[in-house]
């Protein structure tokens, strides 16, 4: 008599936003554009990431990071924002936590600021317009960097 056997589905892949223990990577989004925040949020949550916080300017981004620490795995940081720009906010976050993983979100034409950010400790950058593939690729790559 035939018995039904459960084989693992080889086509089933683990969502990129899950750690090995099955818990989600935790993301803080710092961006003054409601549209960009929503876009990043949608892309990441659809892959199992958890957005643990959002902030609309650099100053509140730094405060939010300190408040969430150590329960945040990665930050997406817009460069041009009111109150405190993304490069300064990155600097403040790196002073507080030198292991912080921050990805800069940049419009085209901000190469100098992107370079400065990388020197200050940003782990990666994404140039807008954003798309799903680009965002996931860079976020996953950054999380794998030691």
């Amino acid at each position: 008599m035939k018995t039904k056997m459960d084989f693992p589905n080889v086509n089933e892949r683990k969502p990129e936003g899950l750690k090995d223990d099955g818990k989600s990577f935790r993301v803080l989004i710092v961006d003054d554009s409601m549209f960009v925040t929503k876009q990043i949020n949608q892309i990441l949550t659809s892959e199992g990431f958890e957005v643990v916080g959002t902030a609309e300017d650099g100053l509140s981004g730094v405060e939010k990071y300190k408040e969430l620490f150590p329960n945040v795995d990665i930050v997406t940081m817009d460069i041009t924002m009111p109150n405190m720009d993304g490069v300064t906010a990155l600097e403040k976050i790196m002073e507080f936590d030198k292991e912080a993983k921050v990805i800069m979100i940049s419009a085209l034409g901000k190469q100098d600021l992107v370079k400065k950010s990388l020197l200050l400790g940003a782990k990666n950058y994404i140039v807008k317009p954003l798309d799903r593939k680009k965002v996931l690729e860079r976020v996953v790559m950054t999380l794998k960097k030691q």
Binding site: S33, M34, V36, A107, L108, K128
Partner: peptide, 21 residues
């Protein structure tokens, strides 16, 4: 609404940034 305005703002941002480059 606010989201629609933020979206058009971002569209203008992206077009201008690419043109300026």
């Amino acid at each position: 609404d606010e989201l629609a305005k933020a979206t058009i703002t971002e569209l203008a941002n992206m077009i201008t940034a690419q043109a300026v480059t």
